[in-house]
Simulated assay, not measured.
Amino acid sequence: MQSSLVEIPFDNRRIRIEYQWLRPERARRPLVVFLHEGLGSVSMWRDFPREFCEAGDYRGLVFSRYGYGRSTPRPHEEKWRPDFMHRQAREAMPALFDALDIGPGRAHGMPWLLGHSDGGSIALIHAASFPQAVAGIIVLAPHIVVEDLSVRSIAGTRQAYLETDLRQRLARHHDDVDSAFWGWNDIWLDPEFRQWDLRPLLSGLRCPVLAVQGEDDEYGTMAQIEGIHRYAPQTTLLKLARCGHSPHRDQKDPLTLAAVRHINAYTSNLK
């Protein structure tokens, strides 16, 4: 499916955001917004958003954040700050939702957010910051604190980018692959980022939450989703065996089954 571009205000300028609607004809069904990982994009999701929406009979929106995919690239001299995920959740996403008429009382209604890795963290920040604007969230391998395991694995990804064909493989999904990679990698390995911590925000979550973690995740431990449950007791936990950092690829079927049940449990019988 062809992507579209929309302009939004961000950081005192106008930027382009790549997006795709999925099954827009199902206008009365829940809308699921997919938030990609730290090296993701619209195309990096592959078929999962479409298959997920078909499984639950949902509408979907997939988009590439600033610096990723076909969205406006990050200038190479621009360094992300430790609050980069907060800015995406509190500034860029509301601007995008305004531009696409998403939200309470708007054409597309209140969304469900399904976020992976950094996208899961952004979903948590957005839902805690705008509790009346989100129907619920599903977070796959989210980060709420920076663990030593995460830093070691991200340092290993840096070496792979420099020494293997990882750069070439990622380049298929980004207009400026170096913009996407170094923006993410540099801030995660910045010593200042070690103090990043979402736990003070989590008690602000009011919506239903499904938090998913693979037992073999090389970027985070079960402490991440258990921490969400500690601060937001309405959270349902899903721990998946034989699953690494990408539950939607490693355990797609059990994830889809649980996530569809989760959404449907909190959704009225819309046709």
Rank of each mutant, 00 (worst) to 15 (best):
F48G: 01
S43P: 02
T72M: 11
D57F: 01
V42I: 05
Y58Q: 04
V62C: 12
M85L: 15
E37V: 00
V33K: 03
M44P: 00
V42T: 05
Q88M: 05
P82D: 10
W80R: 15
H86Q: 14
P75S: 12
P82I: 03
R74L: 14
P73Q: 15
E51F: 01
G69Y: 06
G56T: 11
P73G: 13
M44Q: 07
C53I: 01
D83I: 06
C53D: 06
P75I: 06
P73N: 15
H86A: 07
G40S: 02
G38K: 09
G56F: 14
L61C: 11
H86S: 07
K79C: 14
L61Q: 11
E51K: 05
V33E: 03
H86W: 10
Q88Y: 06
V32H: 04
P30K: 01
R46Y: 10
P75G: 11
S43H: 11
D83Q: 14
L35V: 00
F52Y: 06
S43Q: 14
R46Q: 15
P82L: 02
A55D: 13
H76K: 08
D57W: 02
E37Y: 07
G40A: 00
W45Y: 12
H76I: 04
A55T: 11
V32Q: 03
H36S: 02
D47M: 04
L31H: 04
E77D: 13
V42A: 01
K79R: 15
K79M: 13
G60Q: 11
G56E: 13
S71R: 12
V32P: 11
P82E: 07
H36M: 02
S64K: 07
R74N: 09
F84L: 05
S41D: 05
Y66L: 06
G40I: 00
E37F: 06
Y68P: 13
H36K: 03
R70D: 14
G56W: 14
E51V: 00
E78F: 11
M85E: 13
V42W: 01
R46M: 12
R65N: 11
P73D: 15
Y66V: 04
P49T: 09
K79S: 15
E78R: 08
D57N: 15
L35F: 00
D57S: 12
V42M: 00
P49Y: 07
R29P: 08
A89R: 03
S64Y: 05
